[in-house]
Structures are given as C-alpha cells and as structure tokens.
Amino acid sequence: MATIASTPGASTPGASAPGTTARGRRPSGERTALLGWSAANLLILGISLVPLLWLVSLSFKTPASITDGSFIPNEWTLENYRGIFGESLFTRALLNSLGIALISTVLAVVLGSMAAYAIARLAFPGKRLLIGLALLIAMFPQISLVSPLFNLWRQIGIFDTWIGLIIPYLTFSLPLAIYTLSAFFREIPWDLEKAAQVDGATPLQAFLRVIAPLAAPGMVTTAILVFIFCWNDFLFAISLTSTEQSRTVPAAIAFFTGASQFAQPIGSIAAAAVVITIPIIIFVLLFQRRIVAGLTSGAVKG
C-alpha cells in the first residue's frame, strides 16, 4: 500500500521526462518545477487551512473580542472550552456521538465483512444486483430520506433514540464498507482458504483464523471511513433527534446558547467544533496511508 504517493509535490513530472541529452538544462528546469509545485501546494494548503485556523482562533477569544477581526487573539482564554465541558448539552452529546459512531462502525464492519466476503468469493444469483443496489443506496440523496424517516421513526417509536440514528448511518455506510472490504478480500489468494479447508478448518474457522487476520488492514480502513462518516453527520442527527438523550455533537452545537442570555455562542461553537475535529485529525494523521488505500481500493495489496 506504499504505492500511493501522498505528497504530489515530491515528484516533478514536468522535469523528469527526457534522458541524458537534457542533462545541462535539467537542474534549472527541476528547480523551476519544484518552485511551481511548492507555490501551488502552499496556495492550496492556505485556502484549506485558513477557515480551520480561524475556528481555532475564535475558540480562544473572549466573547468581547470575537468580532474584532484579528487573526491572532489579542486576549487568550480557555473560558469557551471550560464552558462547553461544564454543560451537559455538550458532554452528553459527546457521549452520544461516540456511542452511536462506534456501534455503527462495529456493525458496519462486521456485516460488511460478511457481505463483502460473499461477494468476493461466491458466485450467487443476484450478485450483480446486490452490488448495484448497494451503489445506488450510497448515491441516494440523504435529504430525500429525512422526512419519511422522521415520520416513520416517530410512529414506530425509535425517534430520538440511538438506534434511530444507527440505522440510517448503517444504510449509508454499509455500501461503502462492502465496496472497500470486497476489494481487500479479493486480494487474498483463494488458495489460502482451500489450504485451510484441507487442513481441517470449517468455513468459519478458515474465515476467522486465516482470512480475517489478513483482511485486518482493510477492516481498519473501513472502520475509519465509516466512523468519520457517522461522526461528521449533521443532517440525520438534527432531523431524527429532539433531546439530549440521543443528540450528537454536530446537532448539539446548533443548540448552543452562549454563556449568558445576551452573549453570542460563537466562542463555544468554535470550541466544540475544535474538540470534535481533534479525533478526526488524529485518525487521519495516524492512518492517512490506509485511508487513501481504502479510497483507491482495488489498487491495494492486503
């Protein structure tokens, strides 16, 4: 999985083409290209990082200086962070977010593994249909599901519960899991299972003791992708919850009121946003190679 270069700036396709004849011109050509790439990278990095840094900056500002427009806070304060962790609105939401995202992830990986294993290994009638349906569901506009789900959930009594969020999360993350995992399973030589069977393993033993350990990188990748999807979701969270009982952080942030009745909650919102971004950043930094591998799955050797 090391085949995917994570930093396009390191390779300079423009300058690497001709052979020995261009030796005299090469250093200067390479330098120009390097410069160009660095500039482009910096620009993109700047564009994508400024809003994030602005958020961090806001989270450290006092309510009075929120609107002063300076990038670096004049007055540093941790009051916003202290404020949100003192409120059950946020802490309870954090718990909900963690619980719902983790349960959805585990379920998606377990169910997805089984489905992906079947898709990668067996020829059964309706296999193409299943793959097609999974893809269709993944492409389905989520917003179109929200109002029917809202009504349905209220009637069957799972509105504003963890399960009420886990189900739609599974709907959209399972196709992703099945796609990613089946690509990983396909990379595992079939002979290994045959060998395990001849060695005396039942199909379940062969899966648990031979296939699953080898597919572990794929499962980790899938788990991360699913977790990020559930963790970041706002649409379902805001539509299918109504109380602290099951409201997740992205939804809870919308209900922040500020320290006093008259203060704007911008500082707290920024602080909460930073807090829930941190796990994602850690995940992405730790597993960036795996995530790229998962997104380009198929080009990967498990």
Partner: peptide
C-alpha cells in the same frame, strides 16, 4: 475436505 484426512500442496504454496 476437512473430513477426508488428506493433505494438499498448492502451486502457490498457500
């Protein structure tokens, strides 16, 4: 296969 008590050597070694 597991009940036949035979061992197999694969081309890919597996």
């Amino acid at each position: 296969p597991k009940d036949r008590d035979i061992a197999m050597v694969f081309q890919s070694y597996a």
